[in-house]
Design a protein around this nucleic acid. Structure first.
Lengths: 207, 207
DNA sequence: CAATAAACGAAGGGAACTCCTCCGCTAAAG
DNA sequence: CTTTAGCGGAGGAGTTCCCTTCGTTTATTG
């Protein structure tokens, strides 16, 4: 595969991930090509049809979260640290929101997809079980809670917040979520600055 | 104003709120009318143009949160209880996500809009200051954090989760957020059941 | 219950967008 | 330098949306 082809392939996956998160599974493929900076024909040549593209995006997302979970479990002795590490790593991938968005429009029985989902879920459940065994994670927190929280935190916010602001806020709120609101849970500082919602102008292009 | 006119007015506001949250400020007005169960002409007769409709939706949303804050402060002696009460009330309104979505496309200097924003922000800041004075709310939590959290929690989730499931999960995650993940912060049970993310089929129409 | 005015829904022309294929050009690789 | 994989854009068919016009329905009042 030629170098430019491989580069365009990656660009298309990233653009598709963003556009699908913003516009849902019916998003315009011309918009995807536009944002990737390639011609529409390149998208169709590379992926054939919408389903193939969606499948590739989801597989890349699932693979990333699997690696993040494995790494978090390997690099942290404390399961709670591993959980925090996992959540922040997944936020850095910026791919969690695309998974429920596109799974809904895909065939869940496709073998590679089903396998990736199972692996991903199993790893996080192991991680949670280990954390539960320490007794320091509340018992009613489930895999669904963690997954959904990651989706909520990684989705683009409505309004004109620049990507870097959104990314910093996602980590900040992950910290808040992990540590809790109670004062006696606030030994660690939050990882980013607060946002002033009354100062929208600061984030707008030209007003 | 005739009874059917008033009913349609309200239906249009609710439909517009939902559609704008889902599709952004450029959402199709025909879709709004469709979902409200009225003809497209009724929408234009009632609101004239897109800006007027958006303005009305945001004003209704801001008014609701203002009332929720006043009620929460009046009904709770403990400022932390008031904060929790406020957050759950706002989630019940299902209007928080539409505010940043539409504010971005509106004239922030319009007097009634500016006044409502100021009032809303001031009330929540009072509420937070009172909570901070008790020493039981971590000091680095701001109005922006609370507002943004409410936006994150009230947005529709990607995928095929039915509205009642989404609503229950919003309250559950608000509890989690308020109480924190730590075991010693888990005296109160969560307000809804957990979600099994591996069981998507259960939430889909016909598979 | 009749009269009337308010309110309604649907149709439709024009503009914009999207899909997906075809084809001539560009530039990477040997 | 040559070859061929890879590229971008044009474009016809189809869809959606905007917003107005107009004939019909229905809530209200006497």
């Amino acid at each position: 595969m030629r170098a430019d082809a491989r580069r365009n392939h990656q660009r298309l996956l990233e653009a598709a991930r963003d556009v699908f998160v913003e516009q849902g599974p019916g998003a315009s493929l011309e918009e995807v090509a536009r944002r990737a900076g390639v011609g529409i024909a390149t998208l169709y040549r590379r992926f054939g049809d919408r389903d193939t593209l969606m499948h590739a995006v989801v597989m890349q997302a699932l693979t990333g979260t699997i690696e993040a979970a494995e790494r978090a479990m390997r690099d942290n002795l404390d399961p709670l640290d591993a959980l925090a590490d996992y959540m922040h790593s997944v936020l850095d991938l910026r791919t969690s929101a695309v998974i429920p968005t596109l799974l809904d429009a895909l065939d869940l029985h496709e073998p590679r997809l089903a396998a990736a989902r199972t692996t991903s879920a199993r790893l996080v459940e192991e991680l949670l079980e280990a954390a539960h065994r320490t007794g320091r994670l509340r018992k009613d927190v489930t895999f669904g809670d963690i997954g959904l929280l990651l989706v909520r935190l990684s989705r683009p916010l409505p309004g004109a917040f620049p990507p870097d602001v959104q990314h910093a806020l996602a980590h900040r709120h992950a910290d808040l979520f992990l540590a809790g609101l109670r004062a006696d849970a606030a030994e660690r500082p939050l990882s980013g600055p607060a946002l002033d919602l009354t100062d929208l102008q600061r984030h707008r292009p030209d007003t």
